[in-house]
Design a protein around this nucleic acid. Structure first.
Length: 116
DNA sequence: ATATTGACGAGTG
DNA sequence: GCACTCGCCAATA
């Protein structure tokens, strides 16, 4: 992995192709707008890596704590937060701060899923 | 080079 | 809804 955490300013107009898996995932993630969410599998597809949902999880897991990337906008296919405490609370808080509410522990994907 | 490991997902009972 | 299995795939060990 050449670049574990790319800076947003460097991502904006960069092409997806030609990067390693980690970079492509970060690039795709940087495009997910506030107030919307994507699933791990969905992000993998956006990154051009179909069926690499687990790789997305593995990649997000090691992002630096102070990353500017919207890691919190990624939930699992059931709309549930997929990380253990204390991360769970951190992510939930961040989502709610963007107006994304969790009903019975789940995000309503019908309403908040982002589709470019 | 082989085996294990998941912030996963779809299918089944 | 819950528990389990199986397939997936790159990173790690």
């Amino acid at each position: 992995m050449a670049r574990p955490d790319l800076q947003l300013s460097h991502l904006q107009h960069e092409k997806i192709e030609g990067h390693d898996a980690t970079s492509r995932i970060c690039l795709a993630l940087a495009h997910v707008p506030p107030g919307r969410v994507v699933t791990y599998g969905g992000l993998a597809e956006l990154a051009g890596l179909p069926r690499a949902a687990r790789l997305v999880g593995q990649t997000l897991r090691k992002l630096p704590k102070d990353t500017k990337l919207p890691w919190h906008r990624v939930v699992n296919a059931q709309g549930r937060i997929s990380i253990p405490e204390p991360g769970y609370q951190r992510q939930k808080r961040r989502l709610e701060d963007e107006g994304i509410t969790l009903v019975r522990g789940k995000v309503d994907l019908e309403r908040f899923r982002w589709q470019p």
